[in-house]
Design a protein around this nucleic acid. Structure first.
Length: 309
RNA sequence: CGCGGGAUGGAGCAGCUGGAAGCUCGUUGGGCUCAUAACCCAAAGGUCAGAGGUUCAAAUCCUCUUCCCGCAA
């Protein structure tokens, strides 16, 4: 089996590595172009490129695919049996989807048809879902709408997006390897997605992390967990951005104005929010590392009554 | 060479207009107490990131290096 692997971030690294160790032959790794300078220094390679180079695999980084005749020809010449896509970052045109003999399959970080799109894990956490998972599916034109082949799920509980990212990348890689034999010999089942149940999980950006304290403590806690570790939730304290890494819903009434710091202790910072009290326990100030509030207070002061915006 | 913050005892910080290294917390020992994460007393613990330079004297000024982080991408 000749396989072309397409993926970009950390989420896609695990599957590449497992594939490499398996009996399948990875003939080409396609990933996004290198990013701009990292804090003014060196260029950053996408994680998948790093891994591919380490494994000695051929890497291709087309700027765009649609209409890129040169790249599509290159793919056709390889005559891959299968293309596997994991968080590549761009939609593939029909001309590419039709190249491999067996087809194109995708590892997606949600239990489809829920959370189609770029940030399925983030939104599952933010929305307070009980569980999430990975789905292996056939690719069709359109966003994450192809027939499903297999799924694996996990409980969310109090896990952060970062934790689920790692967990699901491993789960997805294992599921892929378990599912591949059936895909190759055509015995794998195909289940149509119930389109009317589909939801969309758009990309999240740094500016989306600004906390809105009119929301309930429960929603805020989920939001903060969903934005951990990237892009990070934050509130504005004075003139500075205070990034918030961990919080709890105290399930306690709070009569103060929304956003007011009502109590400061080694346990955390209590903030009045929609219908209750949120306790912030781990924060990060600009230029500093993330730290527990108890550590922050050893050398800094926080006055009760201050307003977070 | 995108902009900027930072590196000081275990932790978080102050000191940085140069002249004997400090605060809060923690740790250890002791005391008080029915008791305590509370209080009181005492002690240990730092080559001030590294390398050069200026100076009678550098954590503090100048140069270079390494590492951490925020913003922008």
């Amino acid at each position: 089996m000749k396989i072309v692997y397409m993926g970009t971030p950390d989420f896609a690294v695990q599957a590449l590595e497992l594939l490499y160790k398996s009996e399948y032959e990875v003939v080409l790794v396609v990933t996004q172009p290198d990013k701009g300078r990292d804090r003014g220094k060196k260029v950053q390679f996408p994680p998948v490129k790093e891994k591919a180079l380490e494994l000695g695999l051929r890497v291709s980084q087309p700027e765009k695919i649609k209409g890129n005749e040169e790249f599509i020809e290159e793919l056709e010449k390889l005559k891959p049996d299968l293309i596997i896509v994991a968080a590549y970052g761009k939609l593939l045109p029909k001309s590419v989807l039709e190249i491999p003999r067996v087809g194109c399959i995708n590892i997606h970080g949600s239990l489809l048809p829920k959370y189609r799109g770029a940030a399925p894990i983030h939104w599952a956490v933010i929305n307070g879902e009980q569980e999430t998972g990975v789905t292996i599916m056939h690719m069709e034109e359109g966003l994450d709408c192809g027939d499903m082949i297999s799924k694996a799920s996990t409980l969310i509980g109090k896990k952060t997006t970062a934790m689920l990212h790692e967990e699901l990348s491993i789960l997805g890689a294992q599921l892929l390897l378990n599912t591949l034999p059936g895909i190759c010999d055509g015995t794998a089942e195909r289940v149509k997605q119930e389109n009317e149940k589909a939801t969309y999980a758009p990309m999240v950006f740094k500016k989306d992390g600004h906390l809105d304290f009119t929301k309930s403590p429960k929603e805020l806690e989920q939001f903060i967990r969903g934005f951990n570790s990237w892009p990070g939730a934050y509130a504005i304290l004075g003139e500075e951005n205070m990034k918030i890494w961990e919080s709890y819903d105290l399930e306690k009434e709070n009569g103060s104005a929304i956003g007011t710091i009502t109590k400061v202790s080694a346990q955390g910072i209590e903030v009045s929010s929609g219908g209750g009290t949120l306790q912030i326990t781990k924060i990060q100030m600009p230029g500093k590392k993330p730290m527990m509030v108890s550590d922050y207070l050893k050398g800094n002061k926080l006055i009760e009554g201050t307003l977070l915006k």
